[in-house]
Simulated scan of single mutants.
Amino acid sequence: MRRLGISVYPNHSKLEEIKEYIELAAKYNFKRVFTCLLSVEGDKEQIVKEFTEVISFAKNKEMEVIADVNPKIFNELEISYNDLTFFKNIGADGIRLDMGFTGNEESIMTFNPQDLKIELNISSGTKYLENILSYQANADYLMGCHNFYPHRYTGLNYEHFITTSKQYKERGITTAAFINSPSAHIGPWPVDEGLCTLEQHRELPIEVQAKHLWATEVIDDVIIANAFAAEGELKALSEIDPYQLTLNCELRGDIPSIEKKIVLEEFHFNRGDVSDYVIRSTQSRVKYKGHEFKPFNTPDIKRGDIIVETSLYAHYAGELQIALQPMKNSGKTNIVGRVAEEELFLLNQIKPWQKFKFNLKKK
């Protein structure tokens, strides 16, 4: 199951604000809460009180709560990896190890009687997971989650992100990564230049970041790293199909009704015999066989153009295509619209037989 999540920081926000945010996120079917103990300062009793109240509220909204920790926090709070009662007492469903131990300790944690999930840091790119599994860890209690990066230009490289995420997905372990809300400015650290896992996401609209993470097929849970995201952003994320890539597009004002129906209403998938030049969705040419598709807009083709072939192309008439690179137009090809500019890079995610659909871009 693919889920949405938010992040909250009790030591940086008022508890009532956090509760309002959790309630709002729950309204839009968010199912995870990330919280951070790494930057917590104060006495143990106060920490327990604040985090317990926040976690209890989230749990009542049927949201899973994972707390970010490291060995330093274990020492400061006098917690042993052999006894995770502290985290159970504050109500957490699991802990995320921002920095780990030697491998054996993590494996022991996966047998904790408190029934807590142990979430590992995916981003490090070492054989960390393999090491833990070599100590005969209980893999059913393992999860994986990437880091987020508040400093501009320090976010993950895409290839590294894919490689490290696959280590977890190939073993059936749930994965998570973070996206950045442009309207939110609260994180665990004072640096505020956005909070995201992938550097290329830092300036993108929030829903495009989420679409991309899910389209990679290596991430299950998408979590907003900074607080508090605007309600419009939460709503936009809740409307994304996590399993089928939906491309925002703009259509020509003079597009005929059948061509418009093909773009927005028909079921699309890329043919298995893929081309370097176009993504091809061919079922519409079968359904609308015999309809006359007249030429009405036939300029040269640019990457991201949405095409419906005319009847001048005989049995190709009615086929939908998305251009992957510039091409000369023979005069037989209608350009009926375009993929939104900020989503053009998502075309790289469409594999052979990949299912996809279009939504009109909101103005």
Rank of each mutant, 00 (worst) to 15 (best):
I307T: 04
E309Q: 12
A317I: 08
A317W: 01
V308K: 03
V308M: 10
Y313P: 03
T298A: 05
A323V: 02
F293N: 00
G318S: 04
Y313T: 14
T310N: 10
S311G: 06
Q321M: 13
G331A: 02
L320V: 03
I335D: 04
Q321D: 12
V339P: 00
L346R: 04
L312K: 10
K332R: 10
N334E: 11
I301A: 08
E343Y: 05
Q349C: 14
G318W: 06
K302E: 15
T310H: 01
P352K: 05
S311K: 07
P326A: 13
F345W: 11
G331T: 00
P326M: 04
Y316R: 11
G304A: 11
N348H: 15
K328I: 10
Q321K: 14
K302Y: 10
G318E: 06
T298G: 07
I301D: 00
T310I: 12
A340L: 13
F293Q: 06
I301F: 03
K332H: 09
T298M: 05
H291A: 07
F293Y: 04
E342V: 08
L320I: 01
E292P: 00
P299H: 00
V336P: 02
E319L: 05
L346F: 13
A317S: 15
V308P: 02
S311R: 12
P326L: 08
E319Y: 11
T298P: 05
E343D: 09
L344P: 01
L312C: 04
Q349N: 14
M327S: 05
K351G: 03
R303D: 05
P326S: 14
A323R: 03
N334P: 01
L347R: 00
S311W: 09
E292T: 13
P295S: 03
N348E: 15
I335K: 04
I350L: 15
P326I: 09
N297P: 05
F345D: 13
R338P: 01
I306D: 06
I306C: 07
E341L: 07
K328V: 07
G337C: 00
K332S: 14
G331W: 08
A317C: 04
A314L: 15
N348P: 03
I301T: 04
F296G: 01
L344M: 03
Q325F: 01
I322Y: 06
I322M: 05
I322Q: 09
E342K: 06
W353H: 14
K302H: 14
E309R: 11
K294R: 09
T333M: 05
F345S: 08
A314F: 14
I335V: 13
G337I: 05
N297G: 02
T298Q: 07
G304I: 01
L346K: 10
